[in-house]
Computed example of a mutant assay.
Amino acid sequence: VAEGAVVDGVRADEETVGAADRIAAGLRRKVASGELPLGSWLRQSAIAEEFGTSRTPVREAIQALTATGVAELIPNRGARIRVPTVREIQDGYRVRAELEGLAASIAARYATQHQIEQLREAERLFETAVADVVAGEEGLEEGRQRWTRANDRFHDIILDAARNRTLSAALEWLHLTLPRNLTWNELSRDPRLMQTNVAQHSAIREAIERGDAGAAREAVIAHVMSSAEVVSIGLGDQS
């Protein structure tokens, strides 16, 4: 279809823009979840096939990701998901720690009993996932998926309890440049770090459950910054 042509009342270039937005959103979700790891090359043909489009909206989607710093263009090679520097990792985690600490302090004041129960269940699932990985009862990929789901669930419940859309939007953007699976990549190498992670979740949940906003904030900040430390060390070793 020629650019600007009208098909069923919709301009072809408008369809392209809509498809580009859909592709960009899908790729962002994959980056945030870790399904599309940092440093992954963005192959236009494969992406077009996955989303059922031509390459034109794929190129526009990649341009959009590049404009926001999620992807980068490498001369004569193509585009890939950008790997942040150690300094960017540290700065990003500091901001994330403060934002998630704020969310936890609000949640400690306003979380409903149902949300507290959900938080307990997410904590239990997280603890079980870690225990199974440490015991070697399942493969690393299965363990990563269970750990990620339980970890995301735990943090999402806290964010839901905070009931602040601006806070949610800011953290969603941060997770595009600091995917949560970065922590898994480092923790999974050391069972002691994983067990410490479990204890940190417990401390956060306990503070929220007893309504201690200050302790909840401090527990989350300590939790996030400990992740920043292990991720920074891991990326530094790879550089």
Rank of each mutant, 00 (worst) to 15 (best):
I62P: 00
A64F: 04
A64E: 10
A64I: 02
L65P: 02
T66P: 00
T68F: 08
V70Q: 07
V70D: 02
A71T: 00
E72Q: 14
E72S: 08
I74N: 01
P75Q: 07
A79M: 06
R80E: 08
I81W: 02
P84I: 10
T85M: 04
T85E: 05
R87D: 15
I89T: 03
D91Y: 07
G92Y: 13
Y93N: 06
V95H: 04
V95P: 00
A97H: 09
E98G: 07
E100M: 07
E100W: 05
G101N: 08
A103E: 03
A103F: 03
A104Q: 01
A104G: 04
S105H: 06
I106F: 10
A107N: 06
A107E: 07
A107S: 09
Y110A: 14
A111P: 03
Q115E: 15
E117H: 10
Q118K: 13
R120W: 11
E121L: 15
A122I: 09
E123S: 13
E127L: 07
A131D: 11
A131M: 04
D132A: 11
V133G: 03
L140T: 15
L140I: 15
E142I: 15
Q145D: 08
W147N: 00
T148H: 09
R149T: 15
A150D: 02
R153D: 11
H155A: 07
A161Y: 04
A162K: 03
A162E: 06
N164V: 03
R165D: 15
L167E: 04
S168K: 11
A169D: 12
A170T: 03
A170V: 02
E172H: 09
L174Y: 00
L176G: 03
L178S: 00
P179R: 02
R180E: 06
N181W: 12
L182K: 02
E186F: 08
E186H: 10
S188G: 07
S188Q: 14
R189S: 10
D190Y: 13
P191W: 03
P191I: 10
P191V: 09
P191L: 06
R192L: 14
